[in-house]
Simulated assay, not measured.
Amino acid sequence: MSSFTASIDLPSRASSVPLARRLVRDVLHTWHAPQDREDAELLVAELVANVVDHAGGGVLTLELGLAGAWLRIGVVDGSAVMPVVRALSLTEERGRGMRLVAALSDRWGAEEHRDGKRVWFELAPAGVGEPAEL
């Protein structure tokens, strides 16, 4: 199986959210990645939006890797504050991003990285683990 990697630095501002989505869509298309691209786009948008909202200005790094059939996407920023999966609130307008990441990804995590952190998720190929059609 082939392995691919890509990394790009983006400014930590709101305009990077749709840009990150578009980059993920284009890279996964180019790689012929078997993952659900809409899930990957949604999850990367949540991670980048979290950096914009919580990590302050500067630069973030979008990392993509396809190893065999597994896709791993990470976002690196300069804040050491780790993400938190908040309790669901019906009154708050925000704060559901990491719940989405936890629910839609096959695996996710956060780790220290230099002077900040890397938050990542992994997606299996679309259809893995689903029951066969009768």
Rank of each mutant, 00 (worst) to 15 (best):
H32A: 15
E111R: 15
I73A: 09
W31N: 06
T61Y: 02
A80Q: 12
R25W: 08
V52S: 08
E92G: 04
A80R: 15
T91N: 10
A14L: 14
H113R: 15
V17W: 11
R118W: 03
H32P: 00
A69P: 07
R21H: 03
D106T: 10
H54P: 04
T30K: 13
R25F: 14
G68F: 10
R107P: 01
S89G: 06
A87T: 08
Q35W: 05
L43V: 05
A103Y: 02
R99T: 10
E63C: 10
A49R: 13
T61H: 03
G68N: 02
A14H: 13
F121M: 07
L62Y: 00
A80M: 11
S79Y: 02
A110S: 15
E93N: 10
D26P: 04
L88K: 10
I8G: 00
L104A: 12
A124H: 05
A102H: 09
W31M: 07
L19D: 05
G74H: 02
V52F: 04
Q35K: 04
T91A: 14
E92R: 15
W31D: 05
T91C: 00
R86N: 13
R86Y: 09
P125Q: 13
L47D: 12
E93M: 10
D39T: 15
F4H: 14
G95P: 07
L64F: 04
A6V: 01
G78Q: 13
T61R: 14
R86L: 15
A132E: 11
F121W: 04
S15W: 08
R118L: 14
S7F: 00
V59G: 00
D36L: 06
V119M: 14
A102G: 01
V52A: 09
V17M: 05
L100A: 10
L123D: 01
L71N: 04
R96Q: 05
A110L: 09
R13H: 13
A45F: 04
T91W: 13
A55P: 03
H54N: 11
V76N: 05
A45P: 10
P125C: 04
W108Q: 06
R114M: 05
M82V: 03
E130P: 00
S89M: 06
P11F: 06
L71I: 06
E130D: 12
A33H: 05
Q35H: 15
R99P: 08
P125G: 15
A33E: 07
G68T: 11
E111T: 09
V76I: 15
E130G: 09
E92Q: 14
E122L: 07
D26T: 11
R94P: 00
S15T: 14
V17N: 11
L66V: 08
D53C: 07
A110G: 09
